[in-house]
Design a protein around this nucleic acid. Structure first.
Lengths: 225, 225
DNA sequence: AAAAAGGAATGAAAATATTAGTTGTGGAAG
DNA sequence: CTTCCACAACTAATATTTTCATTCCTTTTT
């Protein structure tokens, strides 16, 4: 899961990314709205955390950018002031959640997770496909009713596949999803192979079919046929 | 997909082409604007990356060339200076995207892909002709409702044909589309024959007709009649 | 119309690129 | 302290691409 943190205070940005990385999210930071706008149009994020107290841009521009962000990813707004004005801003762009400073990182984390669950999987706490069931809240995976322990990367990989059933995913996009964009593309490919192998083994081991289809020269596809 | 990189710094040009080749693009380099102009009029590219800090040519010439480039392919401008002057230049010629040095190759890659997506597929995701259906996102090909696995070259070839129904394509243009222009023309003919043969076989095998019509002395045409 | 010449098709082998599988190391988490 | 996992390096297996010799067609020439 990839998260974009839009925050100009380096210290706060780092605290947030540190915390969320430890929770298994891939984090990227944009220091300005302009940067955020850029990143949004280039990459896909599952959730964007925006600090409304950024210096650049006037009110109107910001709302435009926020709308654009909100259209493609979930969005959580952070603001120092608990004023009506800000709340209205938040609602206007259809933000998914709203927090006032100061806040606990654990709360932010909880909100991010709940948002991703809501957005990504329609509020459903379970993702079910064929004999694979993922309990998102508990982070548990079941294959044919037997629980299967997956490592973090394996879990992320499985979720990425499950939200892209029947779509050909390039090795590169998988790598980007699992490690973010600051990756040496040569090295990361071997790691993709490794994790694919592990996930495959675990699924088959528990009685699932090998749904991961290799596409030579391209990447992989999660598919029933 | 073919990309032209207009860049005089050999090192940078190589980094770019290395990276993008790994991503599956066919890359060619032009070291000067003059060369770029040449190439543009001879070949077709899906995207052109132009470094605006090239030494040759004066401002006006450059703009003329850029306009010519922009008219036929997508264009991404790279510039060392984040000056207004350059930005205006970029907009004036209707460039599709704009980056300042230094940048990450992964970002360039993302921009190229997003540009190609926008330009090429304009949102619609299936290509259907007679009993042949290509699902671009899933990279699936169906002949008469049965899925057909195609290798990369076969797939590229089929897509080239499908976007040129009823048009006579020379062997040379096919070779150029599949491998770029730095090819030994004698060898490339044999390779074209080979891949034509394989694609034909797969189409017919799955119950399609042999839509690939040979035109003696010229090349091939994909046609129903 | 027959022969010659050049282009195209085919099948199979060789070369290459890509993916799978193994193992070892280091570091983090418990 | 132990276990687990991410990562890297390496080897093996596999799929694709390219090459090549040969045959089969078309066109051109005589």
């Amino acid at each position: 899961m990839k998260i974009l943190v839009v925050e100009d205070e380096k210290g706060l940005a780092e605290s947030i990314t540190d915390y969320l990385s430890r929770e298994g999210f891939i984090c990227e930071v944009a220091n300005t709205f302009w940067q955020a706008d850029e990143k949004i149009s280039l990459y896909q994020y599952d959730c964007t955390i925006v600090d409304l107290t950024l210096p650049d841009g006037d009110g109107f521009d910001i709302i435009q950018t926020l709308k654009k962000i909100a259209a493609t990813t979930g969005i959580i707004i952070i603001s120092a002031r608990n004023t009506l004005e800000d709340k209205i801003k938040g609602l206007e762009i259809g933000s998914d959640d709203y927090m006032t400073k100061p806040f606990h990182l654990s709360e932010l984390n909880a909100r991010v997770k709940s948002l991703i669950r809501r957005r990504h999987f329609g509020g459903n706490n379970d993702m079910i496909w064929k004999e694979i069931t993922v309990q998102l809240a508990a982070r548990k995976v079941f294959i044919r009713d037997t629980e299967t322990m997956l490592s973090r990367k394996e879990y992320d990989l499985l979720l990425y596949f499950l939200s892209n059933i029947d779509v050909a995913l390039t090795k590169e996009s998988i790598a980007e999803h699992l490690w973010g964009d600051n990756m040496d593309s040569a090295d990361s490919l071997d790691m993709v192979y490794s994790h694919i192998k592990n996930l495959r083994r675990k699924i088959v081991e528990k009685g699932g079919k090998d749904y991961i289809q290799s596409i030579y020269g391209i990447g992989y596809k999660f598919t029933a046929s």
